[in-house]
Amino acid sequence: MRVALFTDTFTPQVNGVAKTLQRFVNYLDHQNVEYIIFAPDGNQQSVNTEQVKGFKSVPLYLYPECRLSLPNLSTIRKQLEAFQPDLIHIATPFNIGFAGLYYGKKLSIPMVGSYHTNFDRYLQYYDLNILSKWIWKYMRWFHAPFRQTFVPSEETKRDLIQRGFQNISIWSRGVDCQLFHPDYDHTAVREMYNIDEPYILTYVGRLAPEKDLDVFLKIAESLPPSLQKQVHWLVAGDGPIACELKAAAPKNMTFTGYVEGEHLARIYATSTLMVFPSSTETFGNVVLESMAAGTPVIGAQAGGVQGIIAHNETGKLCTPGHVDEFIEAISDLLFNKKLLKEMEIRARLYAKGCSWTSIFDDLLLQYEVAIDETIMSYA
């Protein structure tokens, strides 16, 4: 199998899509599957640069971690014709993705796509709701030629089907349970950030309006007095509203900036709970990472997050935006050590069943089906 991947976000950009695609490329290397990647330019040291065809790019306004590139169409055609892919996978609907769609049609190469981000739901946070109708019209047109459109959760699948999309399949997400685990020395994180309080409540993710971080701050400010002095808040991530959040944050809140790898794994493992109020996630990679570290998550009952958290088993789900529900959930667990310990164990066990290898194995099988369908259509 020879796969051509078109994406407007890739290493070294920092977001769930880029990280997932990087893991997938590592998997393809291990499986000896030939591939070529068309992506924004960057310092892509972690992949074979001969396989990555980069194009100059600028940050996307609503989502700077994605890039708007200016791909050279004639160069792409030459590279595709030389590579002769069996399948094109288009991961994003912007310029590079559009170039993949154009040549997939023109060269009669079977195509699949993936839907990772609820850009439509972001519009309300930037006062751009007027664009919603046109975005969905474009997205339906863009995905129509694909043999399959892969989404990360059942919730996203239902949403797209209701909006008129067809041929929707699940491509879930996994977690590295050898990196994310509970058995780290918890003193290192406490010493690094000068934390003396007994409980650490953590948020991990992009610092942007669509993550409902206004709700997060209200939760932090509104904890009952009996808990307020016992809690330290840790915010791991960066983004366009980082300065605004820091200015409004209570004294018992520390911002780490962007962290990854073992440092991030230690933060998860040292935390008592992760609090994740975002209602716009198609999946929620950080939720699964936290659970792998044995740290239950209190999240919004929306999007893909509600498909990961089992309410009152591996964490708690709260109505999006309802600060009182989040506070009640936090209080319930911090005052019930037995239940908290049971959730820690169940969260870790759930995550251990989410293997990246099995998820990518299944994706390759779906690739083969898409290729076979094309062969049959010509028979």
Rank of each mutant, 00 (worst) to 15 (best):
F38C: 00
V287E: 10
F119C: 05
K352P: 08
V58M: 11
I371P: 03
L60F: 11
M1L: 10
H116D: 00
K352G: 08
L201R: 00
F180A: 04
Y103N: 06
R348P: 09
N285G: 06
Y27Q: 02
I76R: 07
S358T: 14
F24L: 08
Q22S: 15
V323W: 09
P110C: 05
Y199F: 13
Q306H: 10
D185A: 10
C318P: 04
T357L: 11
V25L: 13
A99K: 05
D183L: 06
G205Q: 06
V47M: 13
I267H: 09
Y184M: 01
F142E: 09
M1T: 02
D41L: 13
P277C: 04
K338S: 15
S355V: 00
N95Q: 15
P145W: 02
P59G: 06
Y258T: 08
E210D: 10
R206L: 03
R206D: 00
S114N: 08
Q366H: 10
V259G: 04
V286C: 06
I130S: 15
S331W: 08
T319L: 07
G284H: 06
P198L: 01
E373Y: 10
F335D: 14
S358P: 10
E65S: 07
H232E: 05
W141V: 11
G284D: 05
L334Y: 00
T149V: 14
